[in-house]
Design a binder for these strands. Sequence first.
DNA 1: TTGAAAGCGCTAACAA
DNA 2: TTGTTAGCGCTTTCAA
Lengths: 370, 370
Amino acid sequence: MSDASGLPAKTRPPTRADVARYAGVSTAVVSYVVNDGPRRVAPQTAARVRAAIEILKYRPNVNARALKKGSTEMLGVVLPDITNPFFAEYAHALEVASVAHGYVLVMATSDGNEAQEGQILNDLAKRQVDGLIISTVLPPSGFHAVALPGRPTVLINCSTPFAGYVAIGPDAREGARLLVDHLITVHRHQSVALIMGESSEPVPEPRERGWSDAFQAYDLPPGPIVRASFSRHGGYEAAARLLNWKTRPSAIFAASDQLCTGALKAIREAGLRCPDDIAVVSFDGTSESEYCWPPLTVARQPIEAMAEAALSAVLNPSSTAAYQRFDTEIVIRESCGCSGRHPGQGPQVVEFDRGSTPVSKTVAEARAPQ
Amino acid sequence: MSDASGLPAKTRPPTRADVARYAGVSTAVVSYVVNDGPRRVAPQTAARVRAAIEILKYRPNVNARALKKGSTEMLGVVLPDITNPFFAEYAHALEVASVAHGYVLVMATSDGNEAQEGQILNDLAKRQVDGLIISTVLPPSGFHAVALPGRPTVLINCSTPFAGYVAIGPDAREGARLLVDHLITVHRHQSVALIMGESSEPVPEPRERGWSDAFQAYDLPPGPIVRASFSRHGGYEAAARLLNWKTRPSAIFAASDQLCTGALKAIREAGLRCPDDIAVVSFDGTSESEYCWPPLTVARQPIEAMAEAALSAVLNPSSTAAYQRFDTEIVIRESCGCSGRHPGQGPQVVEFDRGSTPVSKTVAEARAPQ
DNA sequence: TTGAAAGCGCTAACAA
DNA sequence: TTGTTAGCGCTTTCAA
């Protein structure tokens, strides 16, 4: 029973037609006042409409509008694992950046699974998201096959350009190099093991290259590489294996904070102390790296800046460089063997000249693997 | 130039009409094969349609369908802070549960801000999400004011029923009680400080009540309460304050893992050892609690089970109890003072009889606050 | 300044 | 078994 008042009696949410009827205008006028255009509306008419909106508690149906306009104002973001603090922080930064533009995020997790990533992409396409921000687990060829044609797509967390897409990522090679260089020059390590995630890539990861760059600069052979699944547990297992070897390295570079906290646990369980018995550094610089024990010396990724860049890239696909690389920041804490900071002071951040090559090729007082 | 082939030349994604034209059928038939109903289609016709879909790379526009059907197959989830591992794990569990039902999650973060939560809810309403899953930062009265009428809404992370809504949460009071009881009976602590988030509630939080329940059972006065912002830094500051007091407690119960890891940092910086100088237990049981140092003794929330319950509650609002409480699981690790588990074994999980009252009222060898 | 009406892509009742 | 068509809620051109 809808009566003459124009108030719908049903529980169905009010539509623009209800508002028009209530305010005694046409639906076009309602649209004009809701969108503040494209036609002008007489002030008192507008007021009537606004009152009707208020009374009826009318909320425009964004999906219907999307159908008409071709823009959903939704962005899809797919990450390998929201449970990883690095991605959680990234997700948050993306959300902050996107609300500023009136976009909403549809988030999905690939769980590191290629097939799942493909399904998600397909589903997101059907939902007409206006753009995609993805940390893909696929290689370029595989990604091409499932990517959405016609929707701006930016790949994040890419340490290297990604053929055919606009991509963003940290300068992982240089960050890794700096970190390992610190271990070599300041703490006199001669062998630094690398704990990495498994990679389907045939070509070495930038972190791996940065790690070996550092050794090459001193004509030192790099340490061993151990591969693990990208999780705390993976880091734990990798380190446990490492520590069982006859000559264990005196330091570890973990490719992510998660891997590193896992490694730390293995180190403790082996009865070893960090950094005294074995030093550790990692890549990412999430909040957890600051609060764990010992606090981690890391190459910190500028997550907010990258998230903003990713957002402006999806929103202005035309005016975007194919690849943007962001410098990491080396944050010296205790896990490398540097002494703890004085309580109350901020972390010690070391700025390096980007292009500098090490001054001395001699590493004195070298620590031997033990 | 769209030619006789029916292949659209434009970059505009193909619509059902394109498929119909290409397959030489009506749009209805396309709809029938896409949805596998509600009318039957001749096998070879269906094959033709499927071929056309394949060729044209047609993907049904979910929003248009939603407009027609009134269901977007999107669920809104709003959490205070995706950066908190507890909520990140919750988000992941919710996603796993929802993909199983063909739903997609629109995630938003309130940042603990009431006004922001209201805006998010409003925006989600305009987007016609089919249901809401919220960990609200609002009190019941405030929530009522901004809640979406007409959309199934379930409140998660509620330790107590929430007037007018279906809610889900852990048995925080009992979990807290058990944890503190362990500290009192097994480790002989007489004073356990409580680090809590700020709360706008006039009535004490269940964790606080469980904490004081434990003391009451032995006619002991509870320890001090310190309030902090819900973050690692908050826990850090709270503990730092606590440790500065003339008589510091011998143990701390932190209301969340985040608070606890922050407290741990403060303890270390004060030159104290955990658990030797000060024991610590916390609530949540995220992965981080297992990997930090020392590993945390916690009341673990059954996140997966709660997430599934939340999902089935939004999806079947009618057949759902107003409030579902989930038992936590006490996981004994090292931060309480219990010895480390033997490497290779799982954590030590202690099962308590739910209703048991402590046997002895005498606490021998009590540790005095120091 | 306002209104009528077409149409966004889809579903499903109804007709054939 | 298939086609025609109205209409979901909205925007916007065009005419009044």
